[in-house]
Design a protein around this nucleic acid. Sequence first.
DNA 1: GTGAAAGCGCTAACAA
DNA 2: TTGTTAGCGCTTTCAC
Lengths: 337, 337
Amino acid sequence: MEKVNLKRLAEELNLSTSTVSRALQDSYQIGDETKSRVLQLARKLNYVPNPHASSLGSRRSKMISVVIPEVTDSYFAQAINGIEAVAQERGYHVLIYLTHERQQQEQAILKEFQGGRVDGVIMSVSAETTSATHLQELLTQRVPLILFDRALEHVQTATVLTDDFASSAQATWHLIKRGCSTIIFLSYFRNLSIGQARLAGYRQALQDSGLPFQPELVVDCTHSDEHNFQLTLDVLQKHAHTDGIICTAEGLTLSVYQACHELRRSIPADIKVICFSNSRSAAILNPPLTTVVQPAFETGQAAANLLFKSLKNKSAVSAADSQVLPSKLVVRQSTGG
Amino acid sequence: MEKVNLKRLAEELNLSTSTVSRALQDSYQIGDETKSRVLQLARKLNYVPNPHASSLGSRRSKMISVVIPEVTDSYFAQAINGIEAVAQERGYHVLIYLTHERQQQEQAILKEFQGGRVDGVIMSVSAETTSATHLQELLTQRVPLILFDRALEHVQTATVLTDDFASSAQATWHLIKRGCSTIIFLSYFRNLSIGQARLAGYRQALQDSGLPFQPELVVDCTHSDEHNFQLTLDVLQKHAHTDGIICTAEGLTLSVYQACHELRRSIPADIKVICFSNSRSAAILNPPLTTVVQPAFETGQAAANLLFKSLKNKSAVSAADSQVLPSKLVVRQSTGG
DNA sequence: GTGAAAGCGCTAACAA
DNA sequence: TTGTTAGCGCTTTCAC
């Protein structure tokens, strides 16, 4: 069984390869009859085009990449779904890269994209990332880049974020209204603007309600569960009056619940807890967890749409196209119901 | 700034493109001095190879694909981590495709791989899949394929599974020993061997313990939460004596907990619940959930290793290389602690 | 140890 | 509407 490629199709049909190529792309230049002859034979011979040749020839890979810190996180998994839905519709393929929250990985990954591997990149920056030069370089090479959820300042491109400041303030207010006055803030990525925005929202709410801001209550967590658990234990022990916790990353939930449990601090009687989390199981935790739910799927969709818009127009993505989608607070018993 | 490619490097170094190409591949044929000159210039000019040209020329894409039903599931997310870890190490790139449990999608996706897009495929079959012809076709085209977790019978390739029969039997026994005698079995993919194995394990345990097998207690769930919730409610209401539930998919946990809650059936006092789940939050559910935890990361690793072994040897993957990794039962309070 | 040259399979001007 | 003809950038046999 000889391999079937464009040439083979062209020969069997007594057409040129370019005609066949165009017919398969449904080009307006080709007559209907020819098109259907081509399509028919292609189907009959089970022709599948070689994407590498196509990418090389056209300088468009029909692939986009998604660069994220991790995939075992409801938010990112849901965002992938949103991106994939759009990509699928447009006939694009999705390469996924995990940085595991490491800047170095991120740099290495982006570097590769300079070779034309993908037509565009959708990315959420690692918690560790401080420099933006690898992003800048990509943009210099005219590779469209959309940032979502975790952006980096001073990068001239579009972002799709959620209203971090407002939702963090809202979360804080929620605790305050429930009677909390000593609120621990578990921070996850303080170097990123998202981390700063959430912290700022927290501070603003404290200030607006006349509560003091106590820096010792802000804890920088890491990517290690073990470590975060310990950190949480420590801060809870040091501040016996703690009556509220805001946890800015889904992955910290387990540590927080376990730390409270270990210290026999009852949620919500002793301590009220609220987490930024997209996990569906929040509703059945013990106690059910009050969450700030981010629009993950929609953010993925929006990011992908922005990217495809740029690909279509062959124009650089503009920071002016950036979007902010609202998160929502879902109140459950961990804050008193 | 002119674009930098092999030719450009070759010109600047007064070498042929083939020499440069080999030098960059660290070929043994090239002298050390030449190599270092090439590498140095490549670095200086920030050379990034074009992967499409490379794939086309070498007929190896250095990409593998992972085809899974969904990504918002701890098991699959963790499996991706395992695969990615191995791929990364070997310098391979990972394309992710989601079937959303639809056979038709799965077929369309696999079809594309016949064009040489990827060097190999790692896949977990959709719940809906009944036919294996799309897999067979891929194998016919000599594209290595490894199946994990959810395999299809009669496909001549390697699989990496867990001991579904045994772990399901163990789970059932666990409930029986805790005093359950009317145990609902929430099935998720009865057409797949994994579903059959789990069901068989359940039946075996019932039989060994002298309990009757009641077909009405086996419920075929779907991919709709709403629907599954309703199904669970229904079966619980119809069988008021129910005192145990085995839930064979992580995604069903929420429905089960909510259904029990809605019907005021206390877990574990009235009903004991056990789920196949890799979710980390099992430990902090209300009540903490007894789980059958599958070796997700390890399965991903093993599948990837098998694939790379086959790629290295340019040999077809043999069903004889299949592996079975053990799951483990983690007992928590949902079954009485 | 290095080079010449022929592809890989498809796309896209430019012609006709 | 269709064909001709150059590539796209890299790999790889075969020669030297």
